[in-house]
Design a protein around this nucleic acid. Structure first.
Lengths: 103, 103
DNA sequence: CATATTGTTCGATAAATCTAGAACAACTAT
DNA sequence: ATAGTTGTTCTAGATTTATCGAACAATATG
């Protein structure tokens, strides 16, 4: 299957992170990953087309927020919590505490 | 002159804040206000047209990041540091520590 | 008063982003 | 194998955002 690229967090710029988290749909995804550790794309609580979800996951991945590994036909996503929080302390915590909006 | 509206920070949603800080130009503006406390628009280190700057300032204002007061023909802008940090702890600090990119 | 300064608003264009359908590839299961 | 599941890529449309010039309003200055 596809080979997922994950950036070094030291290469991720703050505007890219902010951009990634400026979309309520992606905020919802992060919320879900805070609750469930590892989720396949089709287990995420979003109501968008598959192609759209692929796009959102790519944005989160490129912002260093999520890690994606292949497991058979599915791909499992998790938060890069620790490393991310080291590079951008407090952000994930803010998302965690923010109200869940429609996605 | 214009009457500037400043939202209650409790009414500001996280995606709006993220959106506001997803632009390098606006990050530069926040950087400048971290250094100088209060600055008129024409003192900000940005290389965009006046109309564009007005737009960026409005985005920052609506995200609760800056306060604008009128002083004669100019308007003076400052960060709403304390209250903002109470509502969204750590964000301003992250911006402060982030590298300055081109605007 | 005449001119310059400061910033807004309007209108228009360009660029980026979000969205999704359709075709496709890879794996799973019957 | 045949069909179903999972997710990507391509293409395209729709929405949002960024940008700026020009006209304007309000203040400041000579």
């Amino acid at each position: 299957m596809k080979i997922y690229q994950h950036p070094d967090l030291s290469d991720v710029a703050l505007p890219a992170v902010m951009q990634a988290l400026s979309d309520p749909c992606r905020i919802s995804i992060v919320h879900a990953l805070l609750k469930h550790e590892e989720l396949a794309c089709n287990e995420l609580p979003v109501e968008v087309a598959k192609a759209t979800l692929t796009h959102h996951m790519a944005v989160l991945r490129e912002a260093g927020l999520i890690y994606t590994r292949v497991d058979g036909a599915k791909c499992l996503n998790s938060l890069r919590s620790e490393e991310f929080d080291k590079q951008f302390p407090g952000i994930i915590s803010l998302v965690e505490q923010s109200a869940v909006v429609a996605s």
